[in-house]
């Protein structure tokens, strides 16, 4: 597409590239215009500051998802961001591309509809652990089984933040929340196990502290050509951390730094506190 437009302009060189219209053509169709773009072009600045609490990790994921898309040089018109309900569900609205903010848990179903409706589109789903693994668990099972091409970024803060701090499917056993005042009695859901139980799978675990790894995971996920699931370890300071005794967001970020280590070549499976990419 790009070269075609440029050659169309070439024979008309006495006209020059000085006119405004040609400038516009050049800007949009000359391949080099990518160098002028940055991730900032994918963000809706008129909606900033964002709705999230001070120090929330979702903003970091928003930035790195935009960066990943930008560095993959996917044109803005080919990107659709879909999200569900919850704190992370609000992230779709901050992307300066076509975005959908659907029902609680149904982001994957809607994203599959979008992808099947127009195969040209690159669909990125950004949603939370409660949305994707809790209420939307069934859709996760089946969308991953059907291997629909989409990149799912699951921001895992181990809590239902927007509703005030209730136990989520990924809350660690023994954690005190509003709905588990004696400590969560259940083991957290094993997202890695769910995704990798499919013969053809892409599962990545990253965190809001390990930013380069996060960006690389998202880029690999988007360019995989099938269903990819990226679990991003995040935190919730206002509705979970404070109850657990954390003073502020950096303390929670620091905990992620201390606990999680990147494993660049996991052997088939990631350990509990390992970050990495498991794929076939």
């Amino acid at each position: 597409m790009a070269n075609w437009k440029v050659t169309l302009l070439r024979p008309d060189e006495e006209h020059g590239f000085s006119s405004f219209q040609d400038g516009v053509f050049l800007l949009f169709f000359f391949p080099g215009w990518w160098f002028l773009m940055s991730y900032k072009d994918y963000i809706k600045w008129e909606r900033m500051p964002s709705t999230w609490c001070p120090g929330c990790g979702i903003g970091i994921v928003l930035k790195y998802a935009a960066m990943a898309i930008d560095e993959l040089k996917i044109p803005k018109e080919d990107v659709v961001v879909v999200s569900g309900i919850g704190c992370s569900g609000r992230s779709a609205g901050y992307f300066d591309v076509e975005s959908l903010h659907g029902l609680h848990g149904r982001a994957l179903a809607m994203a599959e509809g979008v992808k099947r409706g127009n195969r040209k589109l690159k669909v990125v789903v950004i949603s939370g652990d409660g949305d994707l693994l809790g209420i939307g668990g069934n859709h996760l099972l089946h969308t991953s089984r059907r291997n629909v091409e989409m990149c799912v970024i699951c921001i895992n803060n181990e809590i239902y933040g927007m509703t005030g701090g209730q136990m989520s499917p990924t809350t660690k056993k023994g954690t005190v929340t509003l709905t588990s005042p004696e400590g969560s009695p259940y083991n957290p859901v094993n997202a890695q196990g769910l995704i990798t139980s499919n013969k053809d799978h892409f599962y990545a675990r990253s965190s809001v502290f390990h930013l380069n790894h996060l960006k690389k995971s998202i880029q690999e996920g988007i360019s995989r050509g099938g269903f990819s699931f990226i679990e991003v370890i995040s935190y919730c300071i206002e509705n979970n951390g404070r109850r657990l005794g954390f003073k502020d967001a950096p303390e929670m970020l620091d905990l992620i730094r201390k606990n999680y280590k990147v494993n660049p070549s996991p052997a088939g499976k990631l350990g509990d506190l390992e970050l990495g990419i498991v794929k076939t």
């Binding site: 900033m48 500051p49 609490c53 001070p54 120090g55 929330c56 502020d248 967001a249 950096p250 970020l253 620091d254």
Partner: peptide, 10 residues
């Protein structure tokens, strides 16, 4: 845009 979360300080 700043919410004074102090992540930059940390």
């Amino acid at each position: 845009y700043c919410k004074l979360c102090s992540i930059c300080v940390y």
